[in-house]
Design a protein around this nucleic acid. Sequence first.
DNA 1: ACGACGATAGGTCGCCCGGCCCATGATCGC
DNA 2: GCGATCATGGGCCGGGCGACCTATCGTCGT
Lengths: 216, 216
Amino acid sequence: MGAQMIRVMIADDHQLFAEGLSQALNALPDTRVVGVVSSGPALEVALSSQPAEVCIVDIEMPGGDGISSIKTLGFKTKAIVVSMHAGDDQNQRAREAGARGFFSKAVPLVTLASAIRAVASGHSLMDLDEEQRDDLLESFREAQLDPGAASLTAREREILQLLAIGVSATDELADRLYISQKTVKNHLASVFQKLAVSDRTQAAIEAIRLGIAKPH
Amino acid sequence: MGAQMIRVMIADDHQLFAEGLSQALNALPDTRVVGVVSSGPALEVALSSQPAEVCIVDIEMPGGDGISSIKTLGFKTKAIVVSMHAGDDQNQRAREAGARGFFSKAVPLVTLASAIRAVASGHSLMDLDEEQRDDLLESFREAQLDPGAASLTAREREILQLLAIGVSATDELADRLYISQKTVKNHLASVFQKLAVSDRTQAAIEAIRLGIAKPH
DNA sequence: ACGACGATAGGTCGCCCGGCCCATGATCGC
DNA sequence: GCGATCATGGGCCGGGCGACCTATCGTCGT
């Protein structure tokens, strides 16, 4: 499975936000939330037992500020600060504490996801002007797919999409794609190899996990 | 599939929150987010073309308050107000506008999910004291499962959980559960019938959709 | 113009899967 | 205690599935 999955820890006292974000990040193929805490001190404790590449930290939390925890944890901990109010003063505080990124909660999810990938790769978003920052985020917009999944052909993706919505029989797949059953089996064999699975059940699960199946 | 799926519309200017919550609600077996907007007026427009049983509305949004939109939409629109700051004054404003529920964003996801089910069933959470409210929420804590899924036995659920994480071969299932391959096939046959599917691939997909498979 | 690759398709083979019959204890509700 | 339900297990059988090998025809890129 996911070889270089980015492990993420979330610290936010608004559970609805933290749990929602957790779900959203876990739905991405290359990030996994390994912990959700609701205060700065809790973050420090959690990190000591559960390593994470990137932390998403709310700047304003009761019972232990996020900023002071980032300072305590040091620069080796890659932190991205999020805030409800995107003020320059907060941006400044985040920078001084050693955060690698600062975002308003008003930004779209894809932006945060790009930032997580950029920060996990060793970049910092704090000392860049707006254009540089946008360019860097843009270059990390695509989810790092599993080596196998990245090499899937268009036809193989079509088969996977159908598989993921429950079209599992060879003859049904053939009917839907207007090709022979034999060709379906050939494509499936390629998919199995590329995804490192051994049957269509596992392939369907991987397809769902990778977000290849689109509608819901 | 999901017969009485509750359609939910989300109005919140914090995209990170809205998108995360959207993911989280879609992951539940009985709710589906049909729209995400970032202002009051946009909510009114969206609802006119896309019906929804319940709306989650942020009380504080730039460019059109959520409260005034709820007033405009009228009582037939079932709205649950969420806020970052859970003050009595905001609670009061939400009640006067005709909202069916009011929550801080600090509440856990399960609470909001219970509230959505309660409100979708016609209840209002506003004119209850704390104890009554908690009791009502408690009674809606369980997701409404599909008729088939509800009648699954414990052992059948175990098999489904394994299936959903990629343990698809009969002999592997048998090994994991310390039973014979024949018994595995018997259980699977029951599962197929109850979920109205015809093979383990479709069963695994249903299991994921129903939230029977737990972690990832 | 040639080679790489993808989409199409066929054959064969062994094994697994799903459908349908049945049987035995254990447990629980009434 | 008696029936219902559940978990366990067996046998049988036909067809589907996955593995391996080969082949033709486009469409690229160079």
